[in-house]
């Protein structure tokens, strides 16, 4: 009996250890398979040179730039909306509407990415084609609003949780002094939830960087360095998805492991940033 109990307790620990090791294992897999590129000391040139397999150049700079541009753009669109919506839920809306809004946000969080992109392909792309006036309508500007729509629910849920943790005594004090709802937002909610606002934004940025389907289906996937936001561009995840088809031993194929490694490092770094001292550790993932 005693042995069996000890055995089961060991089972719990081994499960956790296995899961932890799996996290590291992915990193190792990517390193080992991307090794040929890293080994030759090409790391810098890999990050800074263009993608031209015909000339023997397998740089991923255009994809890196496109990923960062697209993530920043969708954050610029998504952050104000998320902030406004989470404030509406926390401070402005009547109780019943608040429940409705939370339900809507949850529903949006559950909508498959591929469905968003599929609908946008027929709704937004023709519109952008007319607006931009050239090309196919597939561009960074087309993908950004859809990507923003994708990261807004995550950010709103995170922000609302942050606002709810703001010291209740301060809110009551403001009510007692006869402060308005907007004063409550400006003087108490926003300063009080600053860590949550920053962390939620980092999380949104990570989501935007890592999403495949939106950029793959809407950004156009051109391997050239995008010169404007209305240009077609290829992000890192889309690059991984597209190069897939070729030969397992080719340099093209090796380069996608460098992309994977880069994405892994960026998202890992964001997680570390979220844990900087002074930020409350959050478990809502």
């Amino acid at each position: 009996m005693g042995d069996r109990m000890v055995f089961r307790e060991h089972l719990f620990r081994s499960a956790a250890v296995i899961c932890g090791l799996l996290t590291l294992a992915i990193f190792c897999f990517l390193c080992v398979l991307g090794l040929p590129l890293l080994q030759d000391g090409h790391l810098l040139s890999l990050l800074s040179s263009p993608w031209a397999p015909a000339r023997g150049l397998y740089g991923i700079f255009p994809m890196l730039l496109a990923s960062i541009l697209l993530a920043l753009l969708s954050l610029a669109l998504g952050f104000p909306v998320s902030l406004g919506c989470s404030l509406l839920i926390t401070a402005l809306a009547p109780r019943r509407l608040r429940m409705l809004l939370i339900g809507m946000i949850r529903l949006m969080a559950g909508i498959p990415t591929v469905v968003y992109s599929f609908a946008a392909l027929f709704l937004l792309v023709p519109l952008m084609r007319t607006l931009i006036g050239r090309g196919s309508g597939l561009s960074l500007l087309t993908a950004a609003p859809v990507l923003a729509l994708l990261i807004v629910p995550t950010m709103v849920i995170f922000f609302v949780a942050g606002f709810e943790k703001v010291n209740r005594a301060h809110l009551l004090a403001l009510d007692a002094l006869g402060g308005s709802r907007v004063q409550k937002i400006i003087h108490i909610l926003l300063p009080g939830a600053r860590p949550a606002l920053i962390n939620g934004t980092l999380l949104g940025f990570g989501r935007a960087m890592g999403d495949t389907m939106v950029s793959l289906m809407l950004a156009g996937n051109s391997t050239a360095v995008p010169s404007s936001l209305a240009d077609s561009a290829r992000t890192l995840p889309a690059h991984i998805a597209l190069v897939m088809a070729s030969d397992f031993d080719s340099m093209e194929f090796t380069s996608i492991f460098a992309c994977g490694l880069l994405l892994y490092l960026v998202t890992g770094l964001l997680m570390l940033l979220m844990r900087l001292p002074g930020r409350s550790p959050d478990n809502e993932s």
């Binding site: 956790a16 899961c19 590291l24 992915i26 990517l30 890592g210 991984i240 994405l263 892994y264």
Partner: peptide, 19 residues
């Protein structure tokens, strides 16, 4: 472990596919 699981949660799905 908490950090490891958070990183695990943050890994983009395309990278999981690549793995």
């Amino acid at each position: 472990f908490s950090l490891l699981f958070d990183i695990l949660a943050g890994i983009p799905s395309i990278v999981v596919g690549l793995a």
